[in-house]
Write a protein that binds this DNA or RNA. Structure first.
Lengths: 244, 244
DNA sequence: CCGGCTCCTTGACTTCCATCAACGAGCCCC
DNA sequence: GGGGCTCGTTGATGGAAGTCAAGGAGCCGG
């Protein structure tokens, strides 16, 4: 396995709440080789991980040996949440990747700081869930590209550090289909593919139309766990049945 | 719209962390008619909601008018997390459903108590995500049944308060396919369908084999945000490339 | 009781996509 | 440079599941 040459957006560390939890800046940073495992299924869970640079894929190996990727984490993202003692997923570096270990403190302040992050993570999974619910594969791929474009603030240029195989396992399609659809998008003039690991979006509106997106509304605002509007004991039977 | 006769597992409220946050037991409880909206897309977010009895579906209406259900919440589950100011999903009562409003306190203790709940919710979405990644629809339905069976501690009996349409939108298939596959499972002797809203699982092992499940490992244990095993700066290039 | 409604089932057809297969490109090491 | 490897592309084919359509089963109100 060779080192990938792409190092995605190496930028100064972002001023995120997660950073507050790192013990010291020096000893909590690890560099992972391309393809190396950050943690494996069944390993003991505990710390959280923040991506400093590069890209991480999170997924699971099924009993039949198939692989399903349930998410990618890019710079600034935090992953590693577990509700049990063990990791139910694996995490692997896609390219050369820098990871900062986050050690949650025992005091309650730590939970309050982590809260927005876990909710943001939840939001991501929910959104991806909707993508996987789509039956037309074009829509899934379009959604994937739009999502990447909005997460990477690179203008029309989108980096694809992961392999086609990873994208396929992420979108629940075969990697041949990924290849074919990218080609179709190219033929339709929606994208350009200057090299295998980057894509230039020529017609963002068209892509968003394909996957049924509204505007560019990136998740991850401020998490609100405070004041709330009381509306109690409503018996309203607004009961139109929504369907196709 | 008529009231459904099924009220799912009306039990004494479970001693869950969520309960600690309800203001008072009386005024925070609302009863919703079947099909009624608990909150809608675009509404202001704020409080959390705990299911006391019944069942809630959470989903989104896409621009094209299609509906995608991204989760069901049963008794004891907490929903309503949002990373932004607005709800990006709707929540509707499936049958007659009792909802307890949870008002998070401002103090940090609240976040610490809510933490396990949001991580549990995250876990559910992750698991469902893997289900949607499956290409064979039989596997999705088998996974759905197994999931319900493990969430409802009813032995082999599984209540299906939601419509076939809901299941279809949850699994990303057409409702005709749901019907067909349930029939096939019945013909194969895997399930019995005594009435339209309940299923008896005759061969749990076979169902779990179909969807590739290991043992019955219900999520929602104790969330660990504390001590962690330090393993810093590993450069190990354990780089087998996992694939199909 | 009958009509109207929603939900569910079943059938026929068609399309989309997974699979199998072959080949090319890039990379690395010997 | 040549061989071996992984990754990516493209083509051909079959099967799985969506779509269209019709009909049945409850449920309700008049």
């Amino acid at each position: 396995m060779t080192f990938q040459t792409i190092i995605l957006q190496r930028q100064p560390a972002m001023p995120r709440p997660a950073m507050y939890l790192a013990e010291t800046a020096q000893d909590a940073l690890s560099t992972y080789a391309a393809g190396s495992e950050i943690y494996g299924q069944g390993e003991l869970a505990g710390p959280l991980y923040a991506v400093e640079f590069g890209c991480v894929r999170i997924g699971r190996l099924t009993l039949e040996g198939k692989r399903q990727v349930c998410g990618f984490s890019f710079i600034g993202d935090v992953f590693g949440w577990e509700s049990g003692r063990e990791h139910r997923f694996f995490a692997e570096a896609v390219g050369v990747t820098g990871i900062r270990l986050l050690r949650p403190n025992r005091d309650a302040q730590a939970a309050a700081k982590l809260f927005p992050l876990v909710v943001e993570s939840l939001t991501r999974f929910q959104e991806h869930l909707l993508v996987l619910g789509k039956t037309i594969v074009d829509e899934r791929l379009a959604a994937f590209l739009c999502d990447l474009a909005s997460r990477q603030a690179n203008g029309a240029r989108v980096e694809l550090p992961m392999a086609r195989n990873d994208i396929a396992d992420y979108l629940g399609v075969s990697f041949e289909t990924v290849s074919r659809i990218l080609r179709r998008f190219r033929d339709q003039g929606l994208i350009r593919v200057p090299d295998i690991h980057s894509i230039e979006i020529l017609d963002r509106a068209a892509l968003e139309a394909i996957c049924g997106r509204e505007a560019d509304s990136p998740p991850g605002g401020t998490s609100r766990i405070n004041d709330f509007p009381v509306h109690s004991d409503e018996q309203t039977a607004r009961s139109e049945r929504r369907s196709k």
